[in-house]
Nucleic acid binder design. Sequence first.
RNA 1: GGCGGCGUAGCCAAGUGGCUAAGGCAGUGGUCUGCAAAACCAUUAUUCAGCGGUUCGAAUCCGCUCGCCGCCUCCA
Length: 464
Amino acid sequence: MSKKKEVFRSQKEGEVTFYSCGPTAYERANLSHCRRFVVSDLMVRYLESRGYKVDSYMNFTDLDDNTIEGAERAGVDLTTFTSGYIDSFLSDIDTLGVRRATGYPKASDHVQDMIEISHKLMHKGFAYEKHGSIYFDISKFERYGRLSGINLSKIQLGKTVDLDNYEKDNPRDFTLLKRSTLSELKKGIFFETEWGNVRPSWHIECSAMSTGYLGETLDIHTSSRDLMFPHHENEIAIAEAVTGKPLAKYWMHSELLLVDGKKMSSENNNVVTLKDLLAMGFTGREIRFLLLTVHYRKPINFSLKRLASIRTALKRLDEFTIKLLCLPPGRPHPEVTAYVSAMEEQFFTAMDDDLNVSLAMAAIYNFIKKTNPILQVNHLDRDQKNYIIEKLNTINQVLKIFKLQGCPLEPEVDALIQLREKARVEKDWETADKARNDLAQRGIAVIDTANGPLWKRVSDDEEE
RNA sequence: GGCGGCGUAGCCAAGUGGCUAAGGCAGUGGUCUGCAAAACCAUUAUUCAGCGGUUCGAAUCCGCUCGCCGCCUCCA
């Protein structure tokens, strides 16, 4: 709210309440959605790694113009329509390595709360009824605009909304409950109230769910920048008019995802979904890495070229962890422990400063640069190796980027590798190449090094 | 028109008053290698969009200019 970095303090010692605005269930997740998921995951994971217990919720908007129109067009009922998209969002979230939130409330399950809120706002004089719709009277809420810094008297009205469709007292007012249309009534999409049959608006949905699950004041409310005005401003107005208390202690907005410098959106006709990229052979992990390693308050300019360069960077990290995991114990190295602590300290210092991921990653790369030559000559004992793996694991709880599965492999794979090595020593290249091909068919790539061959899985699956 | 953000090497990107301007990708040179792949090492900005100012000292502060982007009341 201060628009500056502040030292984070939760309201309750050791616990954090966390809410992020979720997607509307009428389309597949595109990369903008994915960025929001990954950024809020990073925040939650980081808070957890710092010892907080995080109570996190993300809503699904499954009752609004888009979902109703989408269901209409698809010729199915609303719930069937939205639940398909909700399932696809949840599976995308898993693909991206996002830890599941405490809960994923749906707007349609909380309409009674929204009607209740509207009642309270009417009684307090913040809302009025007109032709069967309920509107929020912005002139009654003096603090309006603090989050986005807008000046209501200077904005241009009607630029993105057809004002003729509404009967507000003041065009700046916004809708709380909307009178149901005839076609909605016919399909049973309406809720009976003393003002007639209505359905809720987007803004009141988030207010109802965030305060409903997490109380009057949340510690952190997160979402992306473009929702700041009017959505969050309205969400604040509703919640604060009801409770008289701030809706959230901290607002964290992630920046946009761009394509050729333009916002990824259907108007710009440049939407890329997660599914598209998976179909092109990219993995959820690569996409996570792309979305994660740019600071959350900076725009990301998406391109396939960029994704390709992310892929090689990630490959290098993988080479390092594989070499480390498969390394047989050797002599102890005098300084490696100091390198590890330096990395750990730099990583957490950088992340403490408003999640400075770029700087945090540099700590890791610098460590790898120093440690690679040590690995090359097998100069680590068992304890040192385990210590490094343990610390990388700690970091990985936050980033979920490294592959830290063990080196052990199935006997038949091992046998093939041994066979190839034996053939190589005997210079029987035909047998050696055949073994290499057999391994490739099992999804195993062999990497020859001075310390003997390494192997890695070409596929990407790894459990948490 | 209002409000906000951004501009650092071929690309991505950290740094917001003072050590040699982090790090990644690509490039180049080298090491290793049966071949292949990979890896490893080294190297890559007298300069931070431009101009002017403040200062002993500026990528960092101030002013102006140029370029790009977002939001402006139910696209989310």
